[in-house]
Design a protein around this nucleic acid. Structure first.
Lengths: 335, 335
DNA sequence: CTGAAAGCGCTTACAG
DNA sequence: CTGAAAGCGCTTACAG
């Protein structure tokens, strides 16, 4: 049995199919009794209008394409959940595509979105961009970026205020009395790493501390990177008493190394993360970190995009603030 | 500038639009030079065929609807990543919808999928079902369930072999010499809880141990539930020496309570989880658990669905095996 | 090889 | 109020 169409209903109701169309839209142009009869029949037949036929006509698919680097990433999962929530509230569907930060996949995703005529595109935490974004732009559809690494190139984006947030985190360490604070960054050159590093330096400057280049390492945003960096820091003649990490994943690696060396956190050394993943509450000890309002960022981005889709010219960049969550991985240094 | 259509190309190439259509499909019915010229023009104009127009004709959208209870759930994120990977490999797109296990949302998701004429539906770890699944079935499209709580009602599903997996986990504890092994389940009555409990009992039986009802608690699949249960177990006159948890989230809560009471794991008590979430490697101590091949389950389900979509009648239920991952949260009891 | 015609399921002027 | 006509962008018989 194929899907029931407006014509099937017309036949059953003994009217023309445009009348059915009108009745189903509650148009005042159709006699009340006729309309009710039609609706009853439509309901009985389990009729659902075809979004594809409608889209062909209206040139709107009420579909938003969402590109992520990895849907299994806990950070991204939260963001997507905010995106999906807002989309659904407004009657939009979300087409999800994983790019794995693979340029080839990105191109194929862009084409697929284009062919499906999505009404707008959301890009989350992309690490690529230089070549990719113009490709997306080609399809003449609004785009909003979330925490993108190349925000300059595009007008619309929502991102965390990295500088302020990381400055806040480092000031927390300074206030606790730490003198030697390390920064374990992401891969060198990424925008968010550069900004978080800037916040670190700003906090140092604000406190009149001098910057010690030897205390800066670069990981890769993952536990391994944190591990390698922690090893390096511990090998220093004069190791730090606190470590500010680019993100929680990095902090996980750092904590791991400390644990395996029986270095107690926060007694011997303090550790701060960034993101506030679920996991941050369950590390040992629970991690002090900067919370990114992930879900909310997804919601804001979706609303921004929906505004653009409906022609509203909204703000181009929205910065959200991080919140310092003090848990048990930070304390004053031993004196 | 609106999207370029086949007619625009036809005009530019001085041919009819059906000829353009044929050329773009590499049909042998069009002269080679003409075809090449057309393709060149199409490319220059940035032409992308409209999937919506094509779908209207072919009655296939090459779209799969995926319903999840929460995309931010780390378990589900992994599964979805396997789903998306396979879908993409086969030229399908994934429309993602979050149900939040809210019946109202589920109904609206079902309608939305129906209207968009998805070619198939994947339901991940749903907790609802009794009413919902028939609703999905109405749209006459293949459905595959992943770890569903009501698998009986539907033909096609992929799930973890809960009984075997949890039996394996409990045998591990028995082999370590534990006599009093607790089970902290999920909410009472869910299929997967029932099965994991069955595996627990089976392991006990196999070892000739008697079942002690007092050592069974029910949480809710989340840390809080684990916490409450741990408190109860500790209040027992004769507390367990090992705790097998319904899932890693539950184990997190259990570990939390032990930590706050300075009960050492695994020295004083052993803990085992289920799922092997990323977080399981980073708890303190790293958690012994049963790994579900999450990503792979997503892939298998997608392939099963794609088979059904193309008319292949595949197996109806695929059970995958869990793998016991022994980390540092289990040891022999103190003697 | 190529074009005119028809049709997928809908909506919306245009006539009555 | 209601229907016949046209058209969204494509594909595919059907004629030439």
């Amino acid at each position: 049995m194929r899907q029931v169409s407006i014509k099937d209903i017309a036949r059953a109701a003994n009217v023309s199919h445009p009348t059915v169309s009108r009745a189903l839209q509650d148009s005042p142009l159709v006699r009340r009794e006729t309309a009710e009869k039609i609706r009853r029949i439509a309901h009985r037949m389990g009729y659902r209008p075809s979004a594809v036929a409608r889209s062909l006509l209206t040139k709107k698919t009420r579909t938003i394409g969402v590109v992520v680097t990895s849907i299994a990433d806990p950070f991204i999962g939260e963001v997507v959940s905010g995106i999906e929530e807002k989309a659904n509230q407004h009657g939009y569907s979300v087409v999800l595509a994983n790019s794995n930060a693979d340029p080839e996949r990105e191109v194929s995703v862009a084409h697929s979105f284009h062919e499906r005529r999505v009404d707008g595109i959301l890009v989350t935490a992309s690490r690529v961009g230089a070549l990719y974004l113009p490709l997306l732009a080609e399809m003449q559809v609004p785009i909003v970026l979330i925490n993108n690494q190349h925000p300059d190139e595009f007008v619309h984006s929502v991102m965390i205020d990295n500088v302020t947030a990381s400055c806040k985190a480092v000031r927390h360490l300074i206030q606790l009395g730490h003198e030697r604070i390390a920064y374990v960054g992401d891969q060198f050159g990424f925008q968010s790493d550069t900004e978080r590093f800037a916040g670190y330096r700003e906090a140092l400057d604000l406190a009149g501390r001098s910057f010690l280049p030897g205390l800066v390492c670069h990981g890769n945003g993952k536990p391994e990177g944190g591990r390698d960096s922690a090893e390096k820091l511990l090998a220093l003649t004069n190791p730090p008493t606190a470590v500010f990490c680019y993100n929680d994943m990095t902090a996980l690696g750092v904590l791991d190394v400390f644990r395996s060396r029986s270095i107690r956190v926060p007694k011997d050394i303090s550790v701060v993360g960034f993101d506030d993943l679920l996991i941050a509450s369950y590390t040992h000890p629970p991690l002090t970190t900067v919370r990114q309002p992930k879900r909310q960022m997804g919601q804001i981005a979706m609303e921004m995009l929906l505004g653009l889709v409906s022609g509203t010219d909204s703000e181009s960049i929205i910065k959200v603030q991080g919140e310092l969550i003090v848990r048990e991985s930070t304390a004053s240094p031993k004196s």
